[in-house]
Design a protein around this nucleic acid. Sequence first.
DNA 1: CAGCAAACTTGATAAATGTCAAACAGATCC
DNA 2: GGATCTGTTTGACATTTATCAAGTTTGCTG
Lengths: 232, 232
Amino acid sequence: MRDNDVPEIRSLPLFQEMEDENFEALIRGAYVQTFPPQVELITEGDPADFLHVVISGSVELFAAWNRRQTTMATVRPISTFILAATIKDAPYLMSARTMEKSRLVLIPSMDVRDVFETDSRFARAVVSELAQCYRSVVKNTKDLKLRSSIERLANYILRIHMTHDRAMQFDLNLEKRRLASFLGMTSENLSRAIKSLRPYGVEIDGQRVTITDLADLEQLAKPSPLIDDYSI
Amino acid sequence: MRDNDVPEIRSLPLFQEMEDENFEALIRGAYVQTFPPQVELITEGDPADFLHVVISGSVELFAAWNRRQTTMATVRPISTFILAATIKDAPYLMSARTMEKSRLVLIPSMDVRDVFETDSRFARAVVSELAQCYRSVVKNTKDLKLRSSIERLANYILRIHMTHDRAMQFDLNLEKRRLASFLGMTSENLSRAIKSLRPYGVEIDGQRVTITDLADLEQLAKPSPLIDDYSI
DNA sequence: CAGCAAACTTGATAAATGTCAAACAGATCC
DNA sequence: GGATCTGTTTGACATTTATCAAGTTTGCTG
């Protein structure tokens, strides 16, 4: 692995606390690779051979069943994905594909498990990361089961708004068809949901989102920290 | 805590590998309590003061938003719940209530976190448990997003069938209204889904389920290990 | 055992969401 | 710049799911 990629991932909470020598060991066996857009990196059901770290670009996690497909999450720099499968030495539950040209670090799962066994600081960091992931999926399930598609869209917009320092204008960082799939609806339905949000203070033109009446939007969305705050 | 409760929970994977003295420390600070049916044990949003272990009976995990409520999971002996919140010292994302008279062990979260910091065998067991939980929720999300309500019911029946040693007849271990909520539908819709499964080899009379044509049911349900096998 | 309450079922209807087809828009490629 | 492709939007319609209002069953309790 090229050294100039090391500092970036060393700063991840997952790798921050571990022993230097163990981090070196992980890095020694790792590959750095740049992938073109729309490359399928992993396929659900395959053995989890590598822990993936996104350095640049973005990756879509998706799942399929019976000719249907759904976007489960998007991963942006700098973060890891499929840690659970790596640690449990279990098959991937989701597939992953690059959404754009992306640079990844691939760390052999066996190395991760070895270090996990010997470095208890790393083991604790893994716990923290997994607990976070688990809670995120639980929040997502609540979003899906308790809200209508319009409410999910409204809250999605508010979440982006929050992560963009409460900006009243920002770009969707996702194609609409992927956003629709992530929110559990069809593209057509998303189009209509966008239209029906206009009276509640949201204009969406292409990728550009403008919140024209935050209070109105919040009254409709009724955001809850126990669903929408990914930091807790 | 009464000693006769110790052996049962000691055998849990979560507690099996840890040092004796640390297990003793957890037990010393723990409470054992028997609750009547329909008691709300924890409320979402509250700080996670205790790790809960179900010794007997059963517990429903549910979540609410905007006057809507949904069953997220049911917990049966012997297992723990809300481990992630305990470890992260974060608020509960779900509420819990007893479904019947139930006996629980409550271990102060602070004790769990203390032992977690010092006992690396325990920390590793926590990882394994969390990874398992995470993967279960991901499977559940796939079930929800990729399948219709009838398909979810069909696969639910097949899962119970599998956990009952492939018995062709068994009882639902859940009230129908809870099952409906868990599967993400209304009671009325579940009633109709049950009826519409009859031509596909499933008879349900009260709590009693009889699979009359397994091949038919499987052809409809198309079960996948990556959604329905909770052991991987 | 009667009487009650809760759970479940059924039918009618409404609302939400998906499907299909076509039009449209923006990007990309000779 | 026109041709083409992909993604988006729109309209008409179908399907799925929810809601409401009875009934019916079940199980409990006095």
